[in-house]
Amino acid sequence: MSESMDSNHDTTPEWERLARGAAGGERDVDLEPELQRELLTFQLDGTHYAIAVERVREIIRLREITPMPRVPDCILGVVALRGEIVQVLDLRERLGLASSEPTRRTRIIVLHGEDDRVTGIQVDAVRDVLRVAEQDVDASGDNAGAAVAELCRRDNDFVSIIDLDQVLDFNDG
């Protein structure tokens, strides 16, 4: 869990660049006229998931997480991030998947937050940024309000697009 302080401050540069670029910095590729979405894909319990790239602030390696009392089980605790204290969510637990020990590839995706609600989500591994045309995205068919609201095709596979607002909302218990 505790790599040395200096090395685990490193971000993964190419992901960060991808995420930042898409989140409003320099866009190196012009948008094509058809509507496109950019998704950051990652792995969780052997399955591919995705979130909207513009919600991603940065991706960091796993660092020491300080557990917090009196929070739901899926909150792993808090990390210190350049002076900010940010809660980290265990996405496996939140989605009801089997839990597992962190590995070398485990990452924390730090999301932009409205009203100072920056949040980290821990995933098994980050994969890449996927551009999909709007028409290739389908509703998942799950009940409204489910964490996975949409699916998109990728080659012969499906990627589940996570509804972050749903996942980060703890008010409904």
Binding site: T66, M68, P69, R70, V71, P72, I75, V78, A80, G83, E84, I85, V86, Q87, V88, L89, G113, D116, R117, V118, T119, G120, L168, D169, F170
Partner: peptide, 19 residues
């Protein structure tokens, strides 16, 4: 003392956190 950011940040008994 910094305020904690996140979806379940308000916890009775915890005033915040520090680095």
């Amino acid at each position: 003392i910094k305020s904690i950011q996140g979806p379940a940040a308000q916890v009775r008994g915890i005033a915040g956190a520090t680095e």
